[in-house]
Write a protein that binds this DNA or RNA. Structure first.
Lengths: 140, 140
DNA sequence: GTTCGTGCAAACGGTTTGCAACAAT
DNA sequence: ATTGTTGCAAACCGTTTGCACGAAC
């Protein structure tokens, strides 16, 4: 993808083959993959890439503000390419993680939160996804 | 503590010395410790206890519904003795985690959440705690 | 030729597991 | 005797680090 190369270059990152391979996967999924899932997926099309290179690329993307690392499942941190503030829904039967738009669950901070300067908040919803819906995001 | 022994026994757990030592620490802190922090604290008063015993006790407490394991900081899961649904505030300067009552941030689910059967939700607030407050919980 | 990127392997930290000894019932 | 509990050590898994080679500027 041409614009991925421009995207990386625009952020001051040299668009090396491996970096682009990692970027192509991680910026085009909403599956919230762990680093090892990224590694395995990228290896399908780029079998020579090493674990360290994937970790380097992901950490670099996080440091440059292209990607976010999130605590959403036990055992491994996951990567989320959606940089705008938003929330998450976790299907407790499948473990699948869905993005939820920020305004889908606005909170009303009450007096109990006096004493806290809230810079951001993140809601994790848990439950089951109804089967009648289609597509990963009901708001798309 | 006498009632801790009764508490454990009431849940079908034999109140062994080590189990009570773990329980005494973890049910009387709101510091959201990791398993290793529990180990180190318990070892101060019970130097012989092994890592496996602490992990066993904590997992047992979680399985019996006395304790909750939470994804609140990177690197290690933390334990929370507050079983009623509630939220958390994380001070981004100190990393300290504070409990926040459930009704302190009620959410208004919007139409965007059609398609999700929400069983529970958990809000993580981030920011800074104002110094003028005292005590770990502004609602105490 | 100096910096940056890569691969490999080792190290690391938190957690889990296998096993033998022991205590409780 | 059977079951449950403990300690030790090793294994395990995700991640980080050290280092040498190679590519890019």
């Amino acid at each position: 993808m041409k614009d991925l190369i421009a995207f990386l270059r625009g952020k001051g990152l040299r668009p090396t083959t491996h970096r682009v391979a990692v970027a192509r996967f991680v910026f085009n999924t909403s599956s919230h993959p762990s680093a090892d899932e990224v590694l395995n997926s990228v290896r399908r099309h780029c079998p020579t890439i090493s674990r360290a290179t994937v970790y380097n690329a992901l950490d670099l993307f996080v440091k440059k503000g292209l990607l976010r690392k999130r605590l959403l499942k036990p055992g491994a941190e996951v990567f989320d390419p959606l940089m705008d503030a938003h929330h998450h829904f976790i299907d407790e039967t499948t473990g699948a993680i869905f993005d939820v738009p920020l305004d889908a669950c606005k909170i009303q901070p009450t007096a109990a939160l006096r004493g806290y300067d809230i810079k951001e908040y993140h809601v994790v919803l848990r439950g089951r996804r109804r089967k009648t819906q289609k597509g990963p995001l009901s708001w798309e």
